[in-house]
Design a binder for these strands. Structure first.
Length: 107
DNA sequence: CAACTGACCTAAT
DNA sequence: CATTAGGCCAGTT
């Protein structure tokens, strides 16, 4: 069994993000858990930040179903735009009903 | 090398 | 539902 390096974890998470189908969203915690690291939710954000493009980062939201980011640029608006274009709906509070749009990995 | 920060989560109260 | 406390670890200072 190989050594689990930070790069390995990153690649694993990014691969899972790519697995998320359009019209569905996943939380950072879900990605971390599916990758095999239940408590590395933060690292998901770090990884996504570094990768930027390459992966559909817009399908990743926090456990509240909201767009997370420091509030720089208009990335939150872009993310919402992209999600709505995929059929994801937001409620009046600007949150996504996770009970409905949360992605469950199908083996 | 130590301290702080951050696209977070869960559980307990 | 709001608040608090703890965890987890890569990057930055």
């Amino acid at each position: 069994m190989e050594s689990v390096t930070a790069a390995t974890i990153r690649a694993r998470m990014l691969a899972l993000v790519c697995e998320v189908p359009a019209g569905r969203v996943a939380t950072y915690g879900d990605i971390a858990r599916l990758a095999g690291f239940p408590r590395h939710s933060r690292q998901v954000g770090v990884a996504l930040r570094q990768v930027g493009s390459e992966v559909p980062w817009h399908r990743i939201v926090n456990h509240e179903g909201r767009i997370s980011r420091r509030g720089l640029d208009g990335n939150d608006e872009l993310q919402r735009y992209l999600l709505e274009a995929e059929g994801v709906m937001f409620d009046a509070e600007g949150r996504i009903p996770l009970n409905r749009f949360r992605w469950m990995k199908t083996l």
